[in-house]
């Protein structure tokens, strides 16, 4: 047996060792289907490269943040304590 025949025989046997029986293929396909179903029940997978959800999330953060800051600023501006706090000190009249 020459080198080439030896190699071919070895590879043929190795390949035969990796042959999948129909019953094993059915079992593997069943497990795959079960896994896909489980993934689907957990919710749709979202690709890491999707841009729209990213923009939507950040848009929501910015809008809600701006509303929050506006409410705080407005309440501070209307607050009498705040008005007093930022008012210039009253002039002290001398007794003499």
């Amino acid at each position: 047996m020459n080198v080439e025949q030896d190699r071919e025989q070895l590879i043929g046997q190795a390949r035969a060792a990796l042959e999948i029986r129909p019953i094993d293929l059915d079992e593997a396909a069943r497990r795959f289907a079960a896994r896909i179903d489980a993934d689907a029940q957990r919710g749709a997978w979202r690709g890491s490269t999707e841009f729209v959800p990213l923009v939507r999330t950040w848009g929501r953060v910015l809008v809600l943040g701006a509303i929050g800051i506006a409410l705080i600023a407005l309440s501070m501006a209307r607050c009498p304590l705040y008005e007093r706090a930022i008012a210039p000190p009253a002039p002290v009249e001398s007794e003499g």
Partner: peptide
Amino acid sequence: GVSTEDPERAAAQSEA
């Protein structure tokens, strides 16, 4: 990958 019912052949294939 043991694809055969023949243990000897299966052993030879695994060895290969």
